[in-house]
Design a binder for these strands. Structure first.
Length: 501
RNA sequence: GGCCCGGUGGUCAAGCGGCUAAGACACCGCCCUUUCACGGCGGUAACACGGGUUCGAUUCCCGUCCGGGUCACCA
């Protein structure tokens, strides 16, 4: 079993030292969970805060779950969120390749190394036998049958071409694992299974690939979800087996989903239809808003900025500290995301908001005569997300059928009779108006209201109802009429008056 | 079920032995107003429970309860 170990020295020599290095290591599933996004963000922020490097690694060792173009989804998501990486599959780097399937020979070498040291062993048990074991006792761990195979028996099976996996031999005793957020966690090794390191297809399991890659890539801080906490002690055992330095682990509590429909809270999952990052974007949420909100889900700033909620990426980088990460799970709250999104939307320069809003406006307003930018101006303070838009502006193209009862509004002191009178008075004024700008319309109407001795609302309400046919509209009578144009406004007023005759 | 982790208002959360226990979202009220929003002002609402430790516990320890996570040739 003499093997050439020159590869080992070669790999070890490439490991970068002396800088903080973090990595985001998603598996390409085709979408990004909000929880994953948060992990990516924290990982990124930690590296940037420390002036270190942020690495992207693709964990595609599950051949049964390959999804086409999934890597592109990861790239696109991270770019849109402002998470730029220093090393990765596309940009390369000193410790590549950065895709696990392109590193397969490596894992095998390292697994064999452990076998040689007596810290791992080949297991020829079939999946059927393992299933049987499990059937007898659902909680059963592997019974180590293959641990007692003699060298001759092993060689014979190897020669016969029997498939096998490589398992780590878990020693007796207890293992204490240290986490930067949770502190020391100790478990009895008896709780741990002789975990599989190398699968029978020659690819590594997640746990093994993680340790090997994190080591070889010089990762100093591993940020990941708290769902990995129970298996974390196994990592120590692996690092110890290799004699490698253990990186700093930073576990983050999971993101739960607060479902307003059912009023229940549960772990966020695609399966339940909980929104992924892509879903949010397609619903008209801004990436910066999502990133800002998600940053605060499980982390809080400290010191004199403890009350700050709105952060640019630069500010997050400056403020981010491991000490601010919380230990308890937090619920993703749509209401709060809406608040963040609405705020970001409102703070956009009007032209930029108009650009974002136009496609959504045009879903409902096909008539090009109606100016999208003018409509957008009405919308900016009135929507929480872009997808709110179409239903708010549908009346421009098609005023709905409405009843005369809409003309009654107590606060505006209107009823059908008053409304008819107001429309009759306003009609000639507007018909004769030369300046059909919002200023012009506003001036003429305010003047008319004064002349008639009624409050502005008494005149404006019936006009707005006639123009839009809806009780609630973005913008008031002046703005709506301005966009509709004189001709269409007068036509709708006629229709309104007809209803009131 | 075993093991691991957690528990401040409905939600996100500050607090890290001594506070009238911040702030934000949501909710309610008032103001502004050309409907609705935006904006401004104000309000309701919390330390899961029981033992310790201490002059003093939301803060430290233990138990209970509750919640979550994890027990794959998936990551």
């Amino acid at each position: 079993m003499d093997m050439d170990k020159s590869w080992f020295d070669g790999m070890e020599a490439r490991i970068p030292r002396g800088e903080v290095r973090t990595r985001f290591a998603p598996s390409p599933t085709g979408y990004m969970h909000v929880g994953n996004l948060r992990t990516a963000l924290y990982t990124y922020l930690l590296a940037r805060h420390e002036g270190g490097r942020f690495i992207l690694r693709i964990e595609d060792t599950d051949q049964g779950r390959l999804v086409a173009d999934a890597v592109d989804v990861i790239y696109a998501t991270m770019r849109r969120c402002g998470l730029d990486w220093d090393e990765g599959p596309d940009v390369g780097g000193p410790v590549g390749p950065y895709i696990q399937t392109e590193r397969r020979a490596l894992y095998k070498n390292y697994a064999e190394l452990l076998v040689e040291k007596g810290l791992a062993y080949r297991c020829f048990c079939t999946e059927e036998r393992l299933a049987e074991l499990h059937r007898d006792d659902p909680n059963a761990k592997y019974d180590r049958r293959c641990l007692s195979l003699t060298p001759e028996e092993i060689q014979a099976k190897l020669d016969a071409g029997e498939p096998y996996v490589i398992r780590q031999r878990i020693p007796e005793g207890c293992t204490t694992f240290h986490d930067a957020v949770y502190g020391d966690i100790t478990v009895d090794n008896a709780e741990l299974d002789d975990q599989i390191l190398l699968k029978s297809d020659g690819l590594p399991t997640y746990n093994f690939a993680n340790v090997v890659d994190d080591h070889l890539m010089g990762i100093t801080h591993v940020v990941r979800g708290a769902e990995y906490l129970p298996s974390a002690p196994k990592y120590n055992l692996l690092y110890q087996a290799f004699g490698w330095e253990i990186p700093t682990y930073v576990h983050c509590a999971s993101v739960m989903f607060n479902d307003p429909a059912t009023g229940t809270v549960r772990k966020m999952s695609k399966r339940h239809g909980d929104p992924s990052y892509q879903d949010l974007v397609s619903q008209g949420y801004l990436s910066q808003a999502v990133v800002n909100y998600v940053a605060l889900l499980g982390w809080a700033p400290h010191g004199d900025i403890a009350e700050q909620e709105f952060f640019t990426m630069e500010q997050l980088i400056k403020a981010f500290e491991i000490g601010g990460i919380s230990k308890s799970p937090s619920a993703f709250d749509m209401d709060k995301l809406n608040y963040f999104n609405a705020t970001y939307l409102r703070e956009l320069p009007p032209e930029e908001f108009a650009r974002e809003a136009e496609p959504w406006i045009r879903r409902a307003v096909k008539n090009e005569r109606y100016d999208a930018a003018a409509i957008a101006a009405l919308l900016q303070a009135r929507c929480e997300k872009l997808s709110d838009i179409p239903e708010k502006v549908d009346f421009f193209d098609a005023p709905p059928e409405y009843g005369a009862d809409l003309f009654t509004n107590k606060k505006s002191k209107t009823n059908p009779e008053v409304s008819l009178e107001m429309l009759k008075q306003a009609y000639p004024v507007l018909a004769g108006l030369a300046d059909w700008s919002q200023e012009g319309i506003h001036g003429a109407l305010v003047e008319l209201a004064e002349r008639l001795g009624v409050k502005n609302a008494t005149l404006m309400w019936p006009l707005r109802i006639a123009a839009a046919g809806k009780a609630v509209t973005p913008g008031g009578a002046v703005e709506i009429c301005g966009i509709l144009g004189k001709e269409e406004t007068l036509r709708r007023m006629e229709r309104g008056m007809a209803k009131l005759q």
